[in-house]
Amino acid sequence: MHPAISVIFFTVTSGAGFGFIAMIGAGVPLPQGLAAAFFLPLLAGGLAVAGLVSSTFHLGHPERAWRAFSQWRSSWLSREGVMAVLTLCLFGLYTLIWMITGDRLLWLGLIIALGALLTVYTTAMIYAQLKTVPHWHTALTPLCYLGFSLACGHLLATTFGPSGGSGAVGVAVLAILIAWGLKLAWWNRAAATNLAAAGSTPESATGLGSMGKVRLLESPHSGENYLTREMVHVIGRKHAAKLRRIALLLGGALPLVITLAVWIFAMSPGWLIVAFAGLLAGLFVERWLFFAEAEHAVSLYYGGGQK
């Protein structure tokens, strides 16, 4: 699949933003005062909104994006839009109350936390629902998205949390480990999953398998088309192994080392912002691979999957 920068930025950034919103809503310890009540929700909401705005850049008609709120009964993309806006509206209200009264309403916060996690889940389901892309079509996909979202959110919450919260730093280590553990399980499954394993071959695509082995002789047109550019994208698979190591190093090892150092040597939690930057950078690489490595069934009509 074609790895569109706008969609990579969207899934990573809004995942981190909604993860932080979930943490704020769940009532993790954060500094008191008006500045914290303004800037921390601004950062969380800003990340979420930046991601959502970026996602509209890949639309052919962004001015009609409001229509996407209508089909939540059947469409995961629509559900994602509805959940994101609902959660952000409630979060705005929560922030306003926090700024004015200095109180963080736990009951409202918990509703927001649930909404934020559901938003991340619906984002992941946009991909996980697609039977046409066997790599994505698994419950591990939403688990990975949720894992990374929570790891990002928790790391941010710990960065800005009151110093001396060593328990929270320990949980951050655990959250990063769990998130990458899920991703390793996802990669492990992906290695054994391709179109053929899902039962789709050039033979099933053409229905000519009973006659013999099927090979593409001529494409419909001599040039590229929307389908080949969007769904038969193969550039970058060559460097997949290297890119995975880079993702693990930047997004896994680096944040773990920093977080562990902060935990063990009781360093200032401000250092965790470097860990967060590493995690985010690693996730951009991870998300790029999520798209670039995924095979789509339509490739079988364009010479893919031939033995």
């Binding site: 699949m1 639309l59 052919g60 008609h61 039977k131 789709s200 695509a205 069934a297 339509v298 009509y301």
Partner: peptide
């Protein structure tokens, strides 16, 4: 249509083109 392209991703046959 907002041109999101998700329907083309959902189709196994490549029947939809932007």
């Amino acid at each position: 249509c907002i041109g999101c392209g998700l329907c083309a991703w959902a189709c196994p046959y490549g029947a939809r083109e932007m």
